[in-house]
Simulated scan of single mutants.
Amino acid sequence: MTGAVEDLLRELAPRVLGTLVARHGQFDACEDAVQEALLAAAVRWPAEGVPQRPRAWLLTVASRALVDHWRTDSARRRREVAAALDPTNEPPDDPGDTLLVLFLCCHPALSPPSQLALTLRAVGGLSTAQVAAAFLVPEATMAQRISRAKQRIREAGGRFEPGPALGVVLHVLYLMFNEGYTDLHRPDLTAEAVRLARLLYRLVPADAEVAGLLALMLLTDARRAARTDAAGQLVPLAEQDRGRWDAAAIAEGQALLARTLGSGPVGQYQVQAAIAALHDEAATAAATDWPQILALYDVLHRVAPGPVVTLSRAVAVAMVHGPVAGLAELGTLDDDARLAHTHRLEAVRAHLLELTGEPAAARDCYLRAARMTASLPEQRYLTLRAARLR
């Protein structure tokens, strides 16, 4: 399957699923039908060419699959056959259909890992194997998790209103964005998270946290082009060529943030967006307003405390008060089990030890961090940092 066809199918999948769910209301059956349609397209389109109306083609094939599933109900079958097999009966492409799927994937009956896994599968367009790789579990395990998630949605009635789930949806979109941003080979996943955040912002423009999340995504993803060098190696923020940053995305994020701050209760996404804006506004790394960033991390710690916030705050403390103070802040996380399976604590510790003039200790931490991450680019980066300290 060509890259162009794969990209098109990933774009169309949540829209087709949303249309079917809006029409029939059975998420699990509709999702299975869409997967069958995607498989058929993956086989036929590269050989026969992409149809003139690819969304209508997928809708027709998926609807036929649904009819087949429902064949025991003859009355419904006749009714659905009439609608499904008419290629001219294509409903308008409503962006809200994708949001409907997103809210269903974030149903409160599901655990947070299941919400994210189902969102990556149904909205992000990842295969079960790709979702499994993102979670570092076997494909069979992830298939079971996704199947159970769809079963729980079915048991809960397969319907869900946006209002109560907004915070959950924001969290899942945030995780989805981070998954794409961390994986240098998945810019499409990041772009999909931004697209959905835009849709959500149009749906609830008065919600400050929705606007804050969109601003955060724009201000962060603006640096994507500068995150790697010509050899594909990771480049840390302080060493990036800021001329490669996306000025239009930064301007849009800043304008959105300016309209948002003060318009409602301060939340974690607004604060994180403000921190990202300060990084983006600095003409050089040396010009970064670290005291203001540290002040914002203090706010973030009150609004949304957690080990990742403490970890990031430790870097700001080091930049304002020196690396020794930053290392002392890191020490508070040594016994936090939530960081036991991530490389980030050791990577930050290595950086701060390097700043204090302890190359041997820094090298050990870099190598330990490299062994803890599953990301090849991060492994290479951390190993190279360690090699420089020989």
Rank of each mutant, 00 (worst) to 15 (best):
E378I: 08
W45R: 05
R349D: 06
R154A: 14
R10V: 13
T310A: 15
Q270A: 14
L213F: 07
A328V: 11
A295S: 09
A247V: 15
D334E: 14
P87T: 13
L367Q: 04
A238T: 13
E48F: 00
S74Y: 02
R368T: 15
G180C: 12
W70G: 04
L173D: 07
V303I: 15
A47Q: 10
A65I: 08
H343P: 00
A387M: 10
A255Y: 04
P187S: 07
P95Q: 12
M372I: 03
A84C: 14
A285D: 14
L355A: 14
R121F: 11
I146L: 15
D289M: 03
R159H: 13
A226Q: 12
A287E: 14
Q151S: 11
V137K: 09
A122V: 09
T190P: 00
D364F: 04
A247H: 12
A134D: 12
D28A: 12
A208C: 10
P205C: 06
E161G: 08
Q268A: 13
E161Q: 13
W57S: 01
V172M: 13
A56P: 04
D280Y: 00
L261H: 02
E31Y: 01
L213R: 03
T88F: 12
V172H: 08
G264C: 05
L196W: 01
R380L: 14
A4C: 00
G49K: 02
L218S: 04
H321D: 15
R64H: 12
A276G: 03
T220M: 08
R44T: 13
A211H: 06
A47D: 11
A40K: 11
L17E: 00
A62Q: 02
L12F: 07
Q379D: 10
V50A: 02
A360W: 07
T88S: 15
Y366T: 09
